[in-house]
Amino acid sequence: MTVAQGQVAVERDNAVMVITIDRPAVRNAIDYDTAQALSAAFDELDASPSLSAAVITGSNGMFSAGMDLKAFAAGGRLPRSERGFAGIVWKPPRTPLIAAVEGFAVGGGFEIVLACDLVVAARDAVFGLPEVQRGQCASGGGLLRLPRRIPYHRAMELILTGERLGAEAAEHLGLVTRLAPPGGALAEARRLAERIAANGPLAVAASKRVVVESQDWSSTEAFDRQEAIVDPVRSSADAREGALAFSEKRAPIWRGE
């Protein structure tokens, strides 16, 4: 089922949501209405226990050129919500999110990618933070997240020069999870999302939460804080079902309980 929300299309396919930025006339640049629609889609994603994974992509062979500067210059509001730029960069969804990148993901488009958990890119895709070339800073998460995703000096070079990074080089640096042939990023991202969704939903959600939140935990508190998150999963009906299904050599039937 696909539902249009202004300039964003939202599709539910079993336990996977696919969110498509659909503004091809402006290379899927983000204006205020698009940011609000994306934010609403992520709210829906997090509020739906039947959804275990999601994919975000762009229409017409282009991920996103970032902020719609023409719309903003014409008096438009900043393209953000309470979740930040594009309805994501300050507060990404709790549900695992995969970026499926075709064409360009530059500026704010790259910052959307950096807010995702996994990245599938076509081999001819291109990433970049060109803000300094325009006298601006990549303040939508680019400065904060890129040095945590790839080696520090390589991140600094990309940030301070504004140069572009090809998908194969990004994969070599560990920024891209999987490469796909041109035109194949969404299909590959769907397959990856389906593999995630086949697992216990409580375990998937808790695992992502620990990985994300533990970045600022001290070593003395890390295991205690992790235990508070994973112990309810360990004692869940899904955990018992997983063990039973393993012993009976069958696929588990998850209930999210």
Rank of each mutant, 00 (worst) to 15 (best):
A243P: 03
F63K: 04
G107Y: 01
A37L: 04
A53Q: 04
Y32S: 12
D22Y: 03
E257Q: 13
A125M: 06
A71I: 07
G58H: 02
A169I: 12
M62Y: 06
R94S: 15
N14C: 12
T34A: 09
P151G: 08
M62W: 07
Q226C: 15
G108L: 04
G109Q: 04
G242P: 00
V106G: 01
A155G: 07
A245L: 00
A239D: 05
L165N: 01
R12S: 08
G87N: 04
L51C: 10
S236C: 04
H153P: 11
F104H: 14
S207F: 09
V8E: 06
L118Q: 11
F42A: 06
A169W: 00
S59C: 06
R149L: 11
L160C: 15
W90D: 14
R250D: 00
T57D: 13
D68A: 12
R77E: 11
A99H: 02
A198D: 08
R27H: 11
A15Q: 10
V8K: 02
R123T: 15
G84W: 04
E221I: 01
S207R: 11
R240L: 13
E227I: 07
A65G: 05
A40Q: 07
I229H: 00
W217H: 09
D124V: 13
N199K: 15
R77F: 08
E11D: 08
A73H: 11
A167I: 02
I19F: 04
M62S: 11
E82L: 13
T177W: 00
L158S: 07
A198V: 08
T177P: 04
A243K: 09
L129D: 02
G141I: 07
V18K: 10
V204I: 11
G174P: 05
L45I: 12
E82Q: 14
L143E: 06
L69R: 12
I229L: 10
V106F: 00
A189N: 03
A15C: 07
A170Q: 01
G6M: 03
P201L: 12
V89G: 03
G103M: 00
A100F: 00
P151S: 05
L175C: 06
D124L: 06
V230P: 15
R12T: 08
A205F: 01
D224I: 10
I196T: 09
Q226N: 13
V126P: 14
K91V: 12
A138G: 10
A197K: 08
G141T: 05
A125F: 03
P93W: 00
D224N: 12
T95R: 10
G135Y: 03
S218V: 09
E163S: 15
V3N: 13
S219I: 14
E241N: 06
Q5L: 15
D46F: 10
C137Q: 15
R191G: 15
D22Q: 06
S218K: 14
A35V: 03
V16Y: 02
G256R: 00
I150P: 08
D46Q: 10
E257Y: 05
A228R: 09
D224M: 11
T161Y: 02
S235K: 14
A180C: 02
G87L: 01
V176A: 04
R250W: 01
A237R: 09
S50R: 08
F63D: 01
